[in-house]
Simulated assay, not measured.
Amino acid sequence: MIRIGILGAAGYTGGELIRLLINYPMTEIVFANSESNAGNLVADVHEGLYGETDLRFTGDMPFDKVDVVFFCFGHGKSEAFLREHDVPENVRIIDLAQDFRLAPEEMLATQHPTPGAHDFVYGLPELNKSLVAEAKHVANPGCFATCIQLGLLPAARMKLIDSDVSVNAITGSTGAGQKPGATTHFSWRNNNMSIYKAFTHQHVPEIRQSLKQLQGRLDAAIDFIPYRGDFARGIFATEVVKTDKPLEEIVEGYKDFYRDAAFTHYVDKAIDLKQVVNTNKCLVHCDKYGDKLLITSCIDNLLKGAVGQAVQNMNIMFGLEETTGLKLKAGAF
């Protein structure tokens, strides 16, 4: 039995994590912390959980009673929290914020707001599974970063990324978090699309870090343009890489890279978003147009892009089968 604590449990990621863990075969949620909701039923906030749990939010954080704690904070809060609180050394941490995704040397190179030493392992299982298995602390990748990296990592291993990569990706409204805002309001989002943080999105440094890890160097730019989509969940991305390598060799390289991956699959025909929504899967497909390799990849931003991957990392950290608690059904129709 794995005893679990959740911090920031009232948001979208906290609710999705609870949804997974109350159906997990060998876990106990010891506490779901939310200062603003302390004492309230979890199901009164995460209303899809009516009839499934009597768990209540708490303002307490009994770290001595858990084996692992999930940080479901907003970005920038995890590093501050660890400065102000003592989490016992034997308690594993899985952080879903961006505070520790970059290695210390990468933090310094990118003038990260919190440079300095840390021991967090970057938790992309398709890249760092063996490191995650030995880690005490794991930094869960960002949602856009997960989708885009899984599209590009095999190309990096084949040393194909020698020129600037064009990336476009569209995300659902849940990617903006649960707190209402001008660009999440239904009347604005419905039947609408928009660009935000073009070329400056915060996930680009972690994408570059992983590509350099496989390719050995990365002189090319990652020209990423994110879009807000008129749907609740999911990310669909396209990545364009210039290469003269034949498509057949590229496809074989992709299939080989993901041959043993638990959730990432190369597909021989065009993919669509509904194939992955409500699952922990990533699907990847490649096409070739002259010297342009077009890669498509898609995930559910709340699952493979957040808490599904966090549970996958927990499974690896505790020596369990990666797919435990994550055999979910896609809402494909």
Rank of each mutant, 00 (worst) to 15 (best):
H203S: 14
T323M: 15
I94A: 07
V42M: 11
E52D: 04
C143I: 00
C72Q: 05
F199R: 13
G142K: 03
T110D: 07
M107Y: 00
L293I: 13
D291P: 08
A139P: 03
I6W: 00
G175I: 03
G59H: 10
E28Y: 02
A169R: 01
G116K: 13
A306G: 15
E252D: 08
I225G: 02
A261D: 12
D291Y: 04
S36H: 14
I18N: 01
H75T: 12
K129T: 02
G11P: 06
L160W: 02
V204M: 04
E206G: 01
E321W: 07
Y266G: 03
A38P: 08
V45T: 14
K212R: 15
T264A: 15
S194P: 00
I250Y: 01
R92P: 05
A261R: 00
S166L: 13
I93M: 09
T27H: 06
G308F: 07
K179Q: 12
P125W: 10
K159E: 10
G74W: 02
Q202I: 10
V276R: 02
E16N: 11
L326G: 01
F63N: 09
D244R: 11
P205C: 07
E239M: 15
N128Y: 14
V277Q: 04
I235H: 08
D67V: 05
I2M: 14
I4F: 02
V45H: 06
T279M: 11
F318W: 05
R228V: 03
N23F: 02
C72W: 01
F120V: 10
V30P: 02
F57V: 11
H112S: 09
L302A: 13
L127A: 11
P25E: 06
L247Y: 05
P180E: 10
M107G: 01
L17I: 04
A262I: 06
N278A: 15
G39L: 13
L303W: 02
A135N: 06
V121H: 04
D67I: 09
T174F: 15
G308M: 08
I2D: 08
N313L: 07
M317Q: 04
L211W: 00
E106H: 05
A156H: 04
E239H: 09
G172E: 09
M193K: 13
L127S: 10
D67M: 07
K281G: 00
I170S: 12
I22F: 09
E84Y: 02
P154V: 08
N280I: 01
M61H: 04
S163W: 00
V68T: 11
V167S: 03
P180D: 08
T171R: 05
G305H: 06
E35Q: 15
A109F: 01
L247D: 07
Y12F: 14
I316V: 10
T279H: 08
L55V: 04
N278W: 02
Q312F: 07
H285E: 03
Y12D: 14
L294F: 06
S130D: 14
H185D: 15
P104L: 13
N33Q: 15
L7H: 03
R217K: 12
F186H: 07
N140V: 08
Q178W: 10
I235S: 11
V165R: 00
S34T: 13
P205T: 06
C282F: 01
A198H: 08
A38G: 10
T58G: 10
V267H: 11
G48M: 05
G172H: 12
P88F: 12
T110G: 03
W188L: 10
